[in-house]
């Protein structure tokens, strides 16, 4: 008996002091799909970052005689594009721009949208109405149309497409942030913090943010894939990256003329977009279920 009792006590001591995020991480590590997706993403991101040091062929160096080689050609494992540039090198280098333009707008929109949404949800009243009704105006347009319209107005270029995509993703994030904040604000611990004399900013920082960031973060991760596809779409339309920069959406556009000559090579940038989008989506699903358990 005493042995059992001692063990129980020891277990209690080991179990204590494990934070919420540590638990989320532990549950996420048990999710094989999420771990696999994270691994693929890390691999692609690392390859993109380290591209200049990987000993790849020059992604800008074309050759008229080596155009549109099929996949598996010696020295060009993934073939060459319509200007004879090495596809493998272009795909890896293309990841730099594509990932940047997929992640940066969501990150910016996450920061701006969370700020606006938390303020709207916490302050309520007229401030809430002002912020949320403004956001509703942006909701009136389909996101693709809005991105094209803003990009078109600002002109082609990476910075402009970044700005337009950020504007597209702020409204949905504000909505999510506002709704979770509104539900947290009514909880007694916020009242207790107010009763202890804390100001609105302190309460938002200490008591509200920690409880709303999780759901907003998960939602934002699910937007990364949408953003990548939209960014690719903008490049495809000639509103994003300009040639000869390697970027998956733009590559898809220029290779489209070769689709009858060498369809497999033409599909490669699309496959990259597909794989990265799916991985971000599955990872965000995994995070959602890892964070879903209350305790």
């Amino acid at each position: 008996m005493s042995v059992i009792a001692d063990d129980t006590i020891r277990i209690v001591h080991v179990e204590k002091a494990r934070g919420y995020w540590a638990n989320v991480g532990r549950r996420l590590m048990r999710d094989k799909v999420a771990v696999a997706c994270a691994a693929i993403l890390i691999l692609i991101v690392l390859a993109a970052i380290l591209a200049p040091w990987l000993g790849l062929a020059d992604p800008y160096q074309g050759s008229m005689i080596r155009r549109l080689r099929p996949i598996g050609t010696p020295r060009y494992i993934l073939g060459t594009d319509e200007l004879g540039r090495d596809m493998f090198a272009r795909l890896i280098y293309g990841g730099r721009l594509s990932l940047f333009i997929g992640l940066a707008p969501v990150l910016l929109a996450f920061v701006i949208g969370t700020t606006l949404g938390v303020v709207a949800g916490y302050v309520g009243g007229l401030v809430n109405q002002a912020i949320m009704r403004t956001v509703d105006v942006f909701y009136a347009f389909p996101s693709v149309l809005l991105a094209i319209a803003i990009s078109g107005a600002l002109g082609a270029g990476i910075v402009n497409s970044l700005v337009s995509l950020t504007i597209v993703f702020i409204p949905p994030i504000v909505r999510v942030a506002e709704s979770v904040t509104t539900s947290v604000r009514t909880l007694d611990f916020v009242d207790a913090a107010r009763a202890s004399g804390a100001g609105a900013l302190t309460i938002m920082r200490v008591h509200v943010l920690g409880n709303v960031l999780g759901p907003i973060f998960v939602y934002s991760t699910s937007l990364i894939s949408v953003c990548m596809i939209l960014a690719a779409g903008l490049s495809f339309l000639g509103l994003g990256t300009k040639p000869p920069e390697p970027e998956w959406g733009l590559m898809l556009n220029t290779l489209r003329t070769a689709i009858y000559v060498n369809p497999w090579v033409a599909a490669l940038p699309g496959a990259m977009i597909f794989v990265v989008s799916i991985c971000f989506n599955l990872l965000s699903d995994g995070m959602r279920s890892a964070m879903d358990v209350r305790d």
Partner: peptide
Amino acid sequence: QMVFQDSYASLNPRLT
């Protein structure tokens, strides 16, 4: 100062 009825809702779940 005040003590609330719902002991769970009145504590921030993210703070020690």
